[in-house]
Design a protein around this nucleic acid. Structure first.
Length: 463
RNA sequence: CGGGGCGUGGCGCAGCCUGGUAGCGCAUCUGCUUUGGGAGCAGAGGGUCGUGUGUUCGAAUCACACCGCCCCGACCA
């Protein structure tokens, strides 16, 4: 059973990260809303507000409430694991940056009013980082002098700020957003291409692990610069960009955990890039029609959740980020940058996975794995069964949310459906008379009757 | 940044046109009853009506200015 494996993996991760997993709803902070706040237009924004995940503090700026924060952390962790697997090295750069680096690359003026500029008490010009190419290049050039240190890929996950003219769609187009950005350094274009491929493959795995189907598409490079770029797009009707692609891209196999990131990844990449896929910015209708048979043509809308760039020596030349090659000659490095919109992914996943009752979290990113619903709080037998289940599941490292509130069953079902916990264990007097609990799957709605032992066996894998 | 709209208890709204001292639903608190898909009854608490200035005997209501937020468009992880 695939979900058993999922639980086992997650359990170990939670333990090693030391995250407090189990929670009683009566002691939790979960401000769910029955009514939809009027400002929210798209479904993910509405559901995030209703499920008590976020609270807007200003246009495009959100506080992440406990439930939302848990999801954000799970997504960040998956991104981290796949980046590490691909050989990238994690670090952390500050949110505030000195303007000097940006003046050096000419981007201080080029970036425009989208960059939030700040003056400190000494009248020094600072900025809240919208991205980190300039800073990472500065760090790189300070320490790396030899081709022997290459390839190198450094990344961090940090809050960014882009002063969008018009923030909207909740966390999908906020001004402040959490982004994972990685930067690769290579001796020449061929080596940089291999770094690019590593990130490309890592991204295929990353989004797939979150239950998302993404398609890499040729894209414009924007103010970051460069000539080779792909956007990773989640198909959704509410997406901001129009996309055009070959339908076969929807069902391409995802590289497994055992993919060799030191090996040749070009076949995996080429398999996809051979087929037409482009966002509207670079779309060429004539080419689309020439390359893709009519029945395979797909025009849709999508949400960009990641982007990979190769930009060559765009930063290394002006910033003099050079290394000495094997021939003793000093050469500017070839760079690439690779972004994943971590906070945007929370919204994108909801857009891709919900129904009329609420969110349907894919298990790997769900804030809790299992909900225990006490149908009759105050009833001695029901309470005892729930307490036992709650204690044993938590002890086994399962992320369990126990609804121990004195409330109507309907209200409890509605809450759990809304916040999208993948599995609901329903404990009530009626079932207990037969020694049975009910296990409901949020995604399929399928209900099973199981004994307490069987429930424990399923969700609390043995040590 | 152009165009449109909205700010009234925590949330959703009415009241504004036609000025007279703020109301409804949900939520919250107390009590009783209830408990397998967002319970019922009874009671209670909570609002400088976005801010400022002006008009008026009197402003949530009229006028002006400002601030904030949302939507459509142009721009963007």
């Amino acid at each position: 059973m695939p979900f058993r494996e999922g639980f086992r993996k997650k359990r170990h991760r939670s333990k090693s990260a030391g995250i407090a997993s189990a929670m009683r709803l009566s002691r939790y902070f979960l401000p769910v809303l029955k009514e939809t706040p009027s400002e929210a237009q798209i479904v993910s924004h509405r559901l995030m507000l209703r499920a008590g995940m976020i609270r807007q503090e200003a246009a495009g700026i959100y506080a992440w409430l406990p439930l939302g924060f848990r999801v954000l952390q799970k997504i960040e962790q998956i991104v981290r694991e796949e980046m590490n697997r691909a050989g990238a090295i994690e670090m952390l750069m500050p949110t505030l940056q000195p303007s000097e680096l940006w003046k050096e690359t000419g981007r201080y003026d080029a970036y425009g009013p989208e960059m939030l500029r700040i003056t400190d008490r000494h009248d020094r010009e600072m900025l809240y980082g919208p991205t980190n190419e300039d800073m990472i290049t500065d760090i790189f050039r300070a320490y790396v002098k030899s081709y022997k240190a290459l390839p190198l890929n450094l990344y961090h996950t940090q809050w960014k700020f882009r002063d969008e003219v018009r923030p909207r769609f909740g966390v999908m187009r906020g001004r402040e957003f959490l982004m994972k950005d990685a930067y690769s350094f290579d001796i020449d274009e061929a080596a940089a291409r291999r770094s690019y491929n590593r990130m490309y493959v890592a991204y295929l795995r990353t989004f797939s692990r979150m239950g998302l189907k993404t398609i890499p598409m040729r894209a414009e490079t924007g103010p970051i610069g460069g000539d080779l770029s792909h956007e990773f797009i989640v198909l959704a009707d509410t997406g901001e960009s129009g996309v055009f692609c070959h339908k076969d891209l929807l069902d391409m196999p995802i590289p497994g955990e055992d993919v060799d990131f030191d090996g040749d990844l070009e076949p995996i990449v080429r398999q996809r890039t051979a087929l037409y896929a482009a966002t509207e910015d670079v779309h060429d209708q004539a080419r689309f029609e020439a390359e893709v048979p009519a029945e395979k043509r797909m025009a849709a809308r999508g949400i960009e959740v990641g982007q990979v760039f190769y930009f060559g020596t765009k930063y290394s030349v002006p910033m003099k980020a050079t290394v000495t090659g094997p021939d003793g000659k000093e050469v500017p490095i070839h760079g690439g940058s690779y972004g994943v919109g971590v906070s945007r992914l929370v919204g994108a996943i909801i857009e891709a996975s919900h129904d009329d009752n609420g969110i349907i979290w894919p298990e790997p990113v769900a804030p809790f794995d299992v909900a225990v619903i006490n149908l009759k709080s105050g009833d001695a037998k029901t309470d005892a069964a729930c307490e036992e289940l709650y204690a044993k599941l938590s002890k086994a490292g399962c992320d369990v949310l126990y609804d121990d509130r004195d409330d109507r069953p309907g209200a409890k079902f509605a809450t759990m459906d809304l916040i999208g916990i993948p599995w609901q264990v329903v404990v009530g007097p009626r079932g207990l008379e037969k020694g049975m609990l009910e296990v409901k799957n949020r995604a399929t709605g399928v209900k099973e009757e199981l004994s307490l032992e069987a429930v424990l066996n399923r969700f609390a894998a043995k040590p």
